[in-house]
């Protein structure tokens, strides 16, 4: 059973500030972490390997320091790690990112399952997982909250919905995006941390994966960010007085213009 887990290094959401001059995320001095959903994807991959055997490869597209999250994944049980890193990837949107990851997956080789977090907590698009599945031409299920059954040929899953969940069966190869209800990620082990420290991270450049320069980075991204700005703080306070019915009437009247 060969599993690939796509992970991303993101700024710690507990520590996010906007640069007041540029209105972009202030990354200076902000701690980087593994995207929290991805921790659950790594955990599920390791559990499936413990159950069915095989190997878990973690894959990330990012700057050289994204190696940190790949090592973290190894300390939590992943077998090997691949970093796709090239200046040419800078500015990639979800379209270009899913193209790049698909190219990298093809270089890694045969696989049964690809796991992704539901979304990254910086961009919050939830598009890269499904986009990658389309590029790889494999079926996918988003928002997986539980793996009910796992065999060498496929899975029975629960997909989280607004009003409950769906039960789905699918055959490999396939891609899943996962939510946090799926499992409780393990604490890294001492032996895992030592292995992570020594592990060799395979580096792939744009040339290594045979990427078309027109399809990667900013040139390959149809999304153009025109302006980033924090919403203006507009707060008015209103105190409603009188008996309860009067107060409700006033509240309804005051909400009316916004409906």
């Amino acid at each position: 059973m060969k599993i690939i887990v796509c992970i991303k290094q993101v700024p710690d959401a507990k520590d996010v500030r906007l640069d007041p001059k540029t209105n972009t995320l202030a990354r200076e001095g902000v701690q980087s972490i593994m995207n929290p959903y991805d921790l659950h994807a790594v955990e599920e991959a390791v559990r499936l390997r413990e159950l069915l055997g095989g190997e878990v490869t973690v894959l990330s597209m990012g700057p050289p320091q994204a190696e940190e999250v790949l090592r973290q994944a190894i300390s939590c049980g992943a077998d090997q790690a691949v970093l796709v890193s090239d200046r040419a990837f800078a500015g990639a949107d979800t379209w270009a990112t899913s193209y790049t990851l698909a190219k990298a997956v093809n270089v890694i080789g045969a696989f049964d399952l690809v796991l992704c977090g539901k979304q990254a907590i910086d961009g919050d698009t939830a598009q890269v997982g499904p986009g990658l599945a389309m590029r790889l031409q494999i079926p996918y299920v988003t928002c997986v909250q539980k793996v009910r059954e796992a065999t060498d040929s496929g899975l029975v899953l629960e997909r989280m919905m607004d009003d409950g969940y769906d039960v789905l069966a699918l055959d490999f190869p396939a891609l899943l995006t996962v939510v946090k209800d799926l499992n409780e990620p393990r604490v890294p082990s001492l032996k895992g941390k030592m292995r992570a420290k020594k592990a060799e991270i395979r580096r792939l450049t744009a040339a290594d994966i045979g990427a078309d320069p027109a399809c990667i980075g900013l040139p390959g991204s149809p999304t153009q960010v025109v302006k980033v700005f924090p919403p203006e703080a507009r707060r008015k306070r209103a105190v409603f007085t009188g008996n309860l019915d009067d107060q409700i009437g006033q509240l309804v009247d005051s909400l009316h213009p916004y409906l």
Partner: peptide, 17 residues
Amino acid sequence: EEQEMIVGIARQITDER
């Protein structure tokens, strides 16, 4: 470095579990 690893793991178990 190894001692830092031990502290890190034990700290995470303490805080999270």
